[in-house]
Design a protein around this nucleic acid. Structure first.
Lengths: 149, 149
DNA sequence: GGATATGATGAAAATGAATTTCAATATCAG
DNA sequence: CTGATATTGAAATTCATTTTCATCATATCC
């Protein structure tokens, strides 16, 4: 973690930025936070240790991390932008509509098929987003799973 | 088309609503519009024929169509909510980052795999969203397609 | 070290899309 | 027709996010 923070600091310097205590706190908070953290959640947790830090700084810092390639913006709908660390390898999401739990998954075969479909349309893919919404085991309504929409 | 509009009218009545000229114009405009229309686009095209109609009514009518199951909200990021008709069968999207073109595709095998993955996690899927972002044939940068992210 | 230029900060204001409020209007049921 | 109520547009509101701006902090030059 220390190494990572130092590396980011160096990149910021190289890009003409300056170090800052507040930003360091936010960045460390981000990497410690659970994945898919909302801006609001991160702000709250950061302010527990450093009450002076405003939501504005959190927004700016996350944007910065995104520009540097360390964070990725997510949008599962329903307000509240989320961010996830870009260090862990690519994965997709199962989102529970009841309790909000987010499960990550990875399926190489789905990715391959996506690749195929895309090329079939003469498309050059740069990124994709696959989210499956429904109810997790705990929240499942009765025992009558619905089919895909 | 006429049949469809009448059917919707009947459903609105059955649900305790009333008919309205403005709403009829918006609904017809929606079904005539290209798919994945933004609220702003639809508002503009509706107002060409009926200048009195406000964006508010368009918002409300689209929400109504969604409630009735005729429309689906989309969000490709970058502001501007989009809606698509729910009459055409389910499909996913290829979105060009350059020109904004949206290509629809359907891949039964991907869907099956999604179903499998989901169940493996004890999840009960109700809907999913698969969007692949990149560059369409026209906008492809040189001829060096990138891999998935 | 100290001065100086400039990046970073927080508060408040601005933005922008979407929603709600409200009084006026249109439509349905009897 | 009349009364009840849904719908409308404009304006006001909401909410997350961004911008502005004066102030503060940090790196760099001396």
């Amino acid at each position: 973690m220390k190494r990572l923070l130092e590396r980011i600091d160096r990149e910021i310097l190289a890009a003409g930025g300056k170090r800052s205590r507040s930003r360091a706190v936010v960045i460390e908070g981000f990497f410690r936070a659970r994945d898919h953290v909302t801006v609001e959640e991160l702000t709250r947790s950061v302010r527990e240790n450093a009450p002076g830090i405003g939501a504005i700084t959190v927004y700016r810092t996350l944007k910065l991390l995104e520009r540097l390639g360390y964070a990725k913006e997510l949008d599962f709908g329903g307000g509240g932008r989320r961010y996830e660390s870009n260090l862990s390898p690519h994965h997709d999401h199962l989102v529970c509509r009841q309790c909000g739990t987010v499960i990550e998954f990875k399926d190489r075969e789905i990715e391959n098929l996506q690749d195929l479909v895309t090329r079939r349309h003469g498309f050059h893919p740069t990124a994709h987003r696959l989210e499956i919404y429904g109810f997790c085991r705990k929240c499942a309504p009765g025992n009558s799973p619905e089919r895909f929409g």
